[in-house]
Design a protein around this nucleic acid. Structure first.
Length: 549
RNA sequence: UGCCCGAUAGUAUAAAGGUAGUACGACAGAUUUUGAUUCUGUUUGUCUUGGUUCGAAUCCAGGUCGGGCAACCA
């Protein structure tokens, strides 16, 4: 099957590298910064990096890019590990850029000794002023031509903690007139008297991304260092460092990151949603985080499948969230147990059914397996969905309306005789007669009902809190809209209802996935307790009637 | 006004000079005790102008449009 599928551009590069003998095996890495939770965009990168190494018989390292102590935390380290493993991947080694601080320091000393790096006493403002703009060249810093010995002494003093934050930096000496802004004497080290989540207070100088990432790749002998498009202009610097240091030549390749419509995909924005309480934490089921999708009921396979279908290329993209929904429905349709639950109840009374009588009816747990069944209690009073009744039926209406026949799933055909309304015009009760000969599985009535609806016995139903989620934002691309992205939050993204469930659902566990027939896929939320079930709606079913309306 | 990426149906993604295909969506029909699933069919596309060539989505040149680049962030 994968032989049939055409190669993406990274697979082509790797196959060419193997064919030419440049590499006999490959090693990739997934390099998150532990400053936030992973999201669906990261899962594209994870599937790519782990998928590529698996396909070509190689390995993948997990490397935390922890060079900025002020934003990083072990909480994030743990969540990242959990999410990767939950997705179904296992790293060969776990490393931290901070493992390499001593080595990186040595690399910096080497550059100074070669006359390729210097300590700059300029302030951040002065450095910015001399940097130039994309259309104008920059100017050399007055400190650019310090002697090697002086630079060495100054850099040693930086490490020793003799200066305050911002007082000095170490810069590469490259070309202040380069058309590539990243080559205009980029900063290599800055002073931060900050506590690091792993190295504690051992360091007060920390390497910048550009001086840590490529060298870390090189130290691990990563063959293909795969990152997103915005790092393209960094590639010359990545290669400059490796070339000047004469170390293992890892190579960087860039792909277009995933964008999903009706959500945001930057850790900064997601952090804001969490901190400002627009959502209930990083794992709020409306969040595009891996932990949010997990809590929502998404399966690892559905996410892997999604990442496979969206493909990999170099052009910017905005993927329709409908594809993600297709992937989870495809999975859950085959694997989830069916059950009946009424989310917006109205009473249905069967006037010719004996009061107090209870029948135990059977219903299939999976539509394609008639042998796997459960028992449902049936009685005179039932709950059905408000929306399955229309006082004045629309054209092509298959469900309940005065005088119309409908099949109660796995039970009887009923005919609507009358209904009650309250002063506000709401239907409060529906009266039907049932056809005793129409019992499911032994129907001799000769009648056919066009529609089938779900129901639960009022006398046996259990109550549950059910959380219905909609997209978090009302616009396709909140990040590109005018003004604050948070002003586009969908006010109806969460609706909590009290539902009536068939009694078997009282035994649901966190591992179970259900299809509430005709309503969608649901799973138990982490807030549920034995006496208080809480269900999350993962996704609705496709709804052809919804379109006809 | 510099440099760097990119441009194929509504959204993604293939076609390595030789039939523009696939998935999702949309639409139509069949089946259905879930208006679900399943099945069948249909629709819609190479940014533009030149050039090279028997032949161009593909190669070349110009243009247009979109994105990125001026954090002591990654």
């Amino acid at each position: 099957m994968s032989e049939e599928k055409s190669l993406n551009f990274l697979e082509e590069i790797i196959e060419a590298d193997i064919a030419s003998g440049k590499h006999t095996s490959i090693l990739t890495r997934f390099p998150p910064e532990p400053n936030g939770y992973l999201h669906i965009g990261h899962s594209k990168s994870i599937c790519l990096n782990f998928g590529l190494s698996a396909r070509y018989g190689g390995k993948t390292n997990l490397r935390f890019d922890d060079t900025n102590p002020v934003t990083e935390d072990t909480e994030y380290v743990e969540s990242i590990k959990e999410d990767i493993q939950w997705l179904g991947f296992q790293w060969a080694d776990v490393f931290y850029a901070s493992d390499y601080f001593e080595q990186l320091y040595g690399f910096a000393v080497q550059l100074i000794e070669k006359g390729l790096a210097y300590v700059d006493d300029s302030s951040p403002e002065q450095i910015a002023a001399l940097k130039g703009t994309p259309t104008e060249p920059g100017k050399d810093s007055p400190f650019r031509n310090r002697g090697i010995e002086e630079n060495l002494a100054l850099f040693t003093a930086m490490r020793a903690g003799q200066y305050k934050d911002g007082e000095k930096v170490l810069r590469a000496k490259i070309d202040m007139a380069s058309p590539n802004m990243h080559m205009r004497d980029p900063i290599l080290y800055r002073i931060k008297h900050a506590h690091h989540h792993r190295t504690g207070d051992a360091w007060c100088i920390y390497p910048m991304y550009d001086f840590a990432h490529g060298q870390s790749d090189s130290i691990e002998k990563i063959t293909h260092s795969i990152c997103t498009l915005e790092f393209i202009p960094h590639r010359p610097l990545y290669e400059w460092c490796i070339d000047q240091l004469g170390i293992y030549p890892s190579r960087q390749y860039e792909f277009a990151r995933l964008n999903l419509n009706y959500t945001v995909m930057s850790k900064r924005k997601l952090l804001q949603l969490v901190n400002e309480k627009h959502v209930d934490g990083w794992d709020d089921p409306r969040m595009p985080t891996i932990s949010g999708l997990r809590r929502r009921g998404y399966t690892p396979a559905s996410i892997r499948n999604f990442c496979d279908r969206i493909g990999v290329a170099k052009r910017d993209n905005l993927i329709d969230v409908g594809l993600l929904e297709f992937c989870i429905r495809e999975d859950l349709n085959l694997t989830s147990k069916r059950a009946m639950a009424v989310l917006d109840p109205v009473k249905l009374i069967i006037t010719n059914y004996e009061a107090g009588k209870v029948e135990e009816l059977t219903s299939e747990n999976y539509p394609d397996n008639a042998a796997d069944t459960r028992v449902l209690p049936f009685g005179r009073e039932l709950w059905i969905e408000q929306e399955d009744f229309m006082e004045v039926p629309a054209k092509k209406w298959f469900r309940l309306a005065p005088g119309m026949l409908v099949r109660l799933k796995s039970a009887y055909i009923v005919q609507c005789e009358s209904f009650d309304k309250d002063d506000a015009g709401n239907v409060t009760a529906i009266y039907c007669t049932y056809i005793p000969e129409s019992k499911s599985g032994q129907d001799s009535s000769g009648l056919t009902a066009k529609g089938t609806i779900h129901w639960v016995s009022a006398a046996h139903a259990i109550q549950a809190e059910v959380r219905l989620y909609e997209r978090l934002f009302g616009v396709e691309n909140p990040a590109s809209e005018e003004g604050d992205f948070k002003s586009y939050i969908n006010p109806d993204s969460l609706k909590v209802v009290t539902a009536y469930l068939e009694p078997s659902l009282a035994n649901a566990t966190a591992a179970d996935r259900f299809q509430f027939i005709r309503k969608g896929y649901f799973c138990l939320d982490k807030m549920a307790t034995p006496g208080y079930p809480v269900f999350n709606r993962t996704v609705t079913l496709k709804d052809a009637w919804g379109k006809i309306k």
